[in-house]
Amino acid sequence: MFFNKFFERLINVNTAVIFLITALVIGGSSFAIYYIEPEEFGNPFNGFWWVMTSVTTVGFGDYVPDTVPGKLYGVFLYLVGIGLISIVISKIIDFMYVYNRRKELGKLVYNGREHIVIADWSKHAKIAIQEILNTEKNIEIVLIDQFEETPYHHDRLFYVRGNPVEKEVLEQANINEARAVFIFPNEITISGEYIHDPSYIDGKSLLIATSIQRHFKDIYTIVEVKERNNIHNFTHVEVDEFIVSSEMISQLAVRSAFSRGTSRIVSQLLSKRHGEDLYEIPKRPSWRTYREAYMDLLEEGATLVSDHDDLNINHKLDEHIPEDAQLFVICHEDTYHKISGKEAK
């Protein structure tokens, strides 16, 4: 009865106090059992080993008290120590549950760096998340939206619940340390009804981009818009890249109609889940012209296709490569790692 009330009160005690009491009991018992039976235990560390195997009920039996005082202290340790360790373990489990639950609900602050921030959840955002996770094995993603809990579960996905227009929400996503931010258009609701008008949807993306650029000017920003005509509304915002989703789909559909298999080729180049992919590589000091780079890369199993967004490499092979060149090749992942001097992970 006494021990039941004692442990009921302990459970309700502050977690830090419980940890402190447990540490004092374990540490004190390690010295106490050594003091009681120095010949048996030899040093306090052996006493600590005996205490831990006792309170965790492992009981290897390599150290056993021989005297009556030692055995009585062992009984005390069983009654008190095991109860304390059980409470500590339950507190740790509770902490892990609460942490994971708060993470799912988007209530935690993200402290990582070089991550990708995605503003607003959509089908395109889901595809982008899957592609990012497949592209780099260590990169983390922070998704910002207003769902009650995360719509996508993954060890490397961190959810922040809130309006991406608000500075506090962007700071919670640690956007200032992010590698890039993607803004995906998503259908908005007014009075519970979905609004499908591209102007309203792109207007929301404009508002998010404006807020990001006002508070965090140096973040590389990529915005997907529903209609190309709406891009001019972003002129006062420093958006680095625009993606017109409706145009890309329509153009790809037309290409596939005239040249069968076009969509499959483009999909393979854009996705890490299929064959050879598109990669950016650094310029080598030994390369003076595009021809030198083209021929070297070809021998290594890669094809040079563009510098920045210029695809006319074949028409200027004898031109000098500028220092700020951004070269892209098509090759297998293993070849890319060899070319870029990186080891495959």
Rank of each mutant, 00 (worst) to 15 (best):
T53F: 10
Q251L: 08
E187W: 06
A325Q: 06
E8C: 15
I18N: 12
I201P: 04
D318A: 05
E276L: 13
G28K: 02
F6R: 03
S30E: 03
T22Y: 04
R284G: 01
Y97T: 14
Y290T: 08
Y110W: 12
Y110K: 05
L317N: 02
A209R: 02
H115I: 09
K217A: 14
N186T: 14
D334P: 02
Y194F: 11
W50Y: 15
P65M: 07
R9P: 07
A32P: 08
I89S: 07
W50P: 02
P282I: 07
I11M: 06
V75C: 05
Y336T: 02
E148A: 08
V254D: 06
V169D: 02
K123G: 15
K5F: 14
A293C: 15
S30R: 02
R284Q: 10
D197K: 04
I243D: 01
L24C: 09
A257F: 06
S90G: 12
E238I: 09
H232M: 14
I36C: 09
E299L: 12
A16I: 13
S271H: 02
E40S: 07
S211Y: 09
I201E: 04
E40W: 05
Q172P: 04
E292I: 03
E136W: 00
S286R: 11
G106K: 03
A344C: 11
Y110N: 08
N138Y: 13
L133W: 07
V55Y: 01
G28F: 09
K137P: 06
T221H: 03
V237K: 00
I141K: 01
E37I: 03
H315K: 09
R260D: 12
T56N: 11
S263W: 00
K272P: 14
A253R: 08
P38H: 06
R9Y: 09
W287G: 02
L270R: 00
S340Q: 04
I26F: 01
E140N: 13
D218L: 04
I11V: 15
E148I: 10
R214S: 14
V225D: 04
R291C: 05
I132H: 03
L157V: 15
Q326A: 13
R273Y: 12
F45A: 08
P65W: 05
A173K: 01
V165I: 12
E177N: 15
S267A: 11
S259W: 00
L170W: 12
T303A: 08
I212V: 04
V305E: 02
P185K: 01
L297S: 04
L79W: 06
N111W: 04
I127W: 13
R101N: 13
D66H: 10
V117H: 01
V225N: 06
V181G: 03
V165Y: 03
A344K: 05
D309G: 13
G83Q: 08
V117L: 05
E168H: 07
D120M: 07
E131G: 09
V109G: 14
